[in-house]
Nucleic acid binder design. Sequence first.
DNA 1: TTGAAAGCGCTAACAG
DNA 2: CTGTTAGCGCTTTCAA
Lengths: 385, 385
Amino acid sequence: MARGAVTIIDVAQAAGVSKSAAARVLARNGSVSDKTRMKVLEAAARLGYRPNHVARAMKSGATNTIGIVVPDVALPFFSAVLRGLADTARAAGFEVLVSNTDNDADIEARSLELLAEQRVDGVVIAPVFQENPAAIVRLDREGMPIVLLDRRMPGLEHLPLVSLDHVDATERAIRSLIEGGHRRIALVTEAAQVRSTLESLTSRTSESSDLSLLRPSAQRFVGYLRALHRAGLEIDDELIIRSGYTTGDAQQAVEAFLDRDTGATALHATDAVLSSGAYRGIRACGFSIPDDLSFIGFDDEDWTTMVQPAVTVVEQPRQRLGATATTALVGIIRGGAAEPREQLLEAELVVRGSVAAASLPSHTLRCEPIRTGVSAPSPSTSGRL
Amino acid sequence: MARGAVTIIDVAQAAGVSKSAAARVLARNGSVSDKTRMKVLEAAARLGYRPNHVARAMKSGATNTIGIVVPDVALPFFSAVLRGLADTARAAGFEVLVSNTDNDADIEARSLELLAEQRVDGVVIAPVFQENPAAIVRLDREGMPIVLLDRRMPGLEHLPLVSLDHVDATERAIRSLIEGGHRRIALVTEAAQVRSTLESLTSRTSESSDLSLLRPSAQRFVGYLRALHRAGLEIDDELIIRSGYTTGDAQQAVEAFLDRDTGATALHATDAVLSSGAYRGIRACGFSIPDDLSFIGFDDEDWTTMVQPAVTVVEQPRQRLGATATTALVGIIRGGAAEPREQLLEAELVVRGSVAAASLPSHTLRCEPIRTGVSAPSPSTSGRL
DNA sequence: TTGAAAGCGCTAACAG
DNA sequence: CTGTTAGCGCTTTCAA
C-alpha cells in the first residue's frame, strides 16, 4: 500500500485531466474521447499505475476474493480441491484466501470470522463435523454466499453442497467385485452406524436428502449395503471391519479380520487412510494380492501404482470438486441465483491389477504374519485361479 | 461488504457516543473511560459488529495479507509448504492468498501483478526459472517485501532465500552409502550441467553464494560430487544417469542404465519425481532392492513406506520451509529489517530398508525385464549379503 | 477523556 | 464528453 502508490490522481495530473476522467478510462466504463483515453493510458503506463483493489473494494463492496476453509490443505484430497478451486476462481476474477481448521470447530469459527472481516465475497467450506455449526449458520444468515464441500450436517440443510456421490462410488466398487464373481466381500469402514440403521436407506431410490446428512463414511457404507442388496446377496456383519480413522487402526483391524476364517475373497476400504492401512494389513499377513485376496482402495494416491500389482481404486474427481464448488459459489455471488441444493459428482473406478476373478469357492486362509523388514516372497498358499 | 454491514457508526449511535470514541474502544488504542468502553462493547456485541478490514486497510495501508506464489499447490511439496506458511502467517495475524503458476513465467507475472493490486503486504514466491524475472524485480524495486522459496536465479541475488540445503542433502545420502561400503554409486539427475562445470564447486567450502544460483537439481548434483570427492572416490560419468523431469523418463533412463554392466551397487535419485521413476525402473528390470541394488529416494512421499522394503529417503522439512519463509517475510514487513540473505534448512536421512551394506564386489547383473502385470517374485539372482 | 473532521483511493451521480 | 463532489468505514490528529 505504502508501495509505489501511484494513484489515479497522479495519473490524472500527469495526463492533464480530471480525476474522474482518468477513472473512467482506467475502469473502462463511461464514455471518454479518444484523445483523453490516450493521454490517460499513456500517463498510467509511464507512471506504472496499478489499480488499488482495496479502494475499489471499499467503494464497491465487493472484494473479488473468496475464502476456502478446509481441515488441512496438506492432505492430498484438499490440496487437489484447492487447485481446482483456485483455477476456477482466478478465471472468474477472484482471488483465494485459504484457512486450515484441523477439524477443530473453534478454529473453524475463528477462520470464518476472519474471512468475514476481510469481507470476502463468499466461502467454500468443508465443515468440521459438529453438533451446532453456529458460525456457519450465522454467516449464512448475514447473507454471506456459502457452498459446502464434501460434507453437510444438521443445521446446514439449506446450503448448497458439492460432493462426491459417495453412495454410488462405493456401490460401483462393490458391484464390480460382484460381477467378478466375488460373494464374500469385506468392507473396511470408519462409519459408526450399525448396519440396521443404514439398511433402510438401501432400498429407496432417491433418498439423497436424507443421505447427504450422513458422513461420507456412512454414505459409502450405504453404497456397500446397496450393492449387495441389489445383487441379492446376504449381508454378513462378520465381513464389516470397523476401524478408527488412522492407518494403524485400519491395519490392525484388517489383520485381526484376516486372522479369522471368514471366507472373504475380496476387500474394499472406503477411504484413502483406511486403504493404506488395509493394504499394509493384508501384506503383513503375508497374503498375496490378488491371488489370496482381491483389493480395491479408495482415492488414487501415488502409492497405488508403485506397489505391485498396482491397486484398483475408486478415484474422486478432486480438482473438479473444487472447480464445481467455485462455479456454484460465483453463481450465487453474481446472480444471487439459488444454486441446486446438491451437486454430486461421480467417482471413477480405475481398474488395475489388484482384483482377480473369484472362480473357486473360498477356502480357509489365515493370517500368517511375516518377518518384518524382509521383502516377502508371496506365500502363494492358495492356488486360486 | 453489503453484508450485515454494522458499521462503527451504528455502534457509536447505539452506544450514544461519538464515532471516534467507538473507534478508540474497538481498535483498543487511545484512552477511554471505563463507562464509555462498556457501552461501546455492549453495543458492538449486541449489534454483531465486525471490523471491516477493507476500510482498515484503506486507512492504514496494511492489508495484513500475504501472497504465496508456487508452481502448483497440488504437489505434495508445495501443499506442505503452504500449510507451514499458512499456520505461521495466521499466528502472526496475516491471511494468505494463493497463486499457482504451472511454471509459466507469464502466469507468474500476472499473479504478482494481481497480488500487488490487492495490496498484499508481502510475497513468498517459488519463482519460475526464467531468463529475466522482470515481474519479481519490478515488485522488489517498488518496495514489496519478497522472500524467495527454494529457488533463486540471476537477477534475484539480493532477495532473501529460504531453501533446503540441497548440496548437503544429497551429500548426506551419498555419504551414508559410502559408509555402507558402496563404491559404485549411481545418480539419477535432471541437472543439465556436465560434470566438469560443477566439479570446481566441489572443493571450496563456502561457495554458497555461487551455489544458490544453481537449480536445486544442480546443487544436489554438486552434493553427489562433493561426497565422492571427500571420500576420495573417483567420479565415473558412466554412473550419472541423466533424465528428463518425468517419472517415465526416469524409469526409462534407469532401465537403460541397468541394462549396461556398470557395476553399480547403489542408486540415488535426487528428486521425488525421479525417485518414483527410478524405483519403477529398478523393479521393472526385476532387480531386488536392496539385495541387487541399494536405493535412496528423495522426499518422503507415501509410497515409500507402502512398498517392501520401505525406501530410505532424504526428507525435506517442507512445512518448516514454509514457516521459515513466512517468519522472514513478516520480519521484513514489520521491521524492514534486512533478513539474512539465505536460510538453508537441513534435510534428514530417513533410514529404512532399501539400503544394504555392500560387502561383496559388484558382479555382472543385467536388466531382465519381467512380464508386466505379474507380481514379480524377486529374481534373487545374486546372493549378496 | 471526548468529539469533530480530514482523509486513504476509488466510483458514480450529477451538473455543466 | 468532462469536471465536481460526495461518500465507502475506519483511523487519527487536533481542539475542546
